[in-house]
Lab assay of single mutants.
Amino acid sequence: KYKEAKESFQRFLENHEKMTSTTRYKKAEQMFGEMEVWNAISERDRLEIYEDVL
Rank of each mutant, 00 (worst) to 15 (best):
E43Q: 09
T22H: 11
E51F: 06
R24S: 15
R44D: 09
Y2S: 02
K26E: 15
I49Q: 04
S8I: 13
F32V: 04
A28W: 00
S42C: 14
F12H: 09
Q30S: 10
M31E: 06
E7F: 07
E36F: 00
R44S: 14
E4Y: 07
K26G: 12
S42N: 08
K18N: 13
S8M: 12
D45G: 02
T20M: 06
Y2M: 04
N39L: 06
R46H: 00
M35L: 14
A5H: 09
Q30H: 12
Y50L: 06
A40G: 11
M19C: 09
L47Y: 13
A5K: 13
L47S: 08
Y2P: 03
F9H: 03
R46F: 02
F9I: 01
E43D: 10
F9A: 07
E51D: 09
E51P: 09
K6A: 03
D52W: 04
D52Y: 14
F32W: 12
F12D: 09
E51R: 12
E4P: 00
E43W: 04
F9E: 10
S42H: 08
F9P: 10
E48L: 11
S21H: 15
Y50K: 03
R11H: 10
E4K: 06
M35K: 06
W38Q: 12
T23N: 01
K3G: 05
L47I: 14
S42V: 06
Y25S: 05
Y25G: 06
R24H: 15
E34F: 04
R11T: 11
K18V: 09
K26L: 09
Y2H: 00
F32G: 07
E48Q: 15
H16N: 13
D52V: 09
L54F: 09
S8V: 12
V53L: 12
R44C: 09
M31L: 10
E7I: 14
M19G: 05
A40P: 06
I49K: 03
A28H: 01
L47K: 13
F12M: 11
T20P: 02
D52H: 15
M35P: 05
T20F: 08
E51W: 06
E48K: 14
M35V: 05
H16Y: 03
L13D: 10
L47F: 13
N39W: 00
R24N: 15
E51K: 14
T23W: 11
R24G: 15
D52K: 15
E29N: 00
K27N: 10
F9Y: 07
A40I: 02
E51A: 10
T23G: 04
Q10I: 10
H16S: 13
M31I: 09
T20K: 08
A28T: 03
W38E: 08
H16K: 03
E4L: 11
D45L: 00
M31Q: 10
L47N: 09
I49S: 07
M35W: 01
D45R: 01
D45P: 01
T20V: 11
G33K: 13
F12Q: 05
K1W: 00
S21V: 11
Q10Y: 01
T23S: 04
R24C: 15
K6T: 03
T20H: 15
I41N: 04
T23R: 02
R44N: 14
E29P: 04
Q30K: 11
R46E: 06
M35T: 13
Y50R: 08
L13R: 03
E7K: 12
E36T: 10
S42A: 13
M19Y: 02
R11F: 12
K26Y: 13
K26D: 15
R46C: 00
Q30R: 10
V53M: 03
M19P: 03
E43S: 04
M31N: 01
Q30G: 08
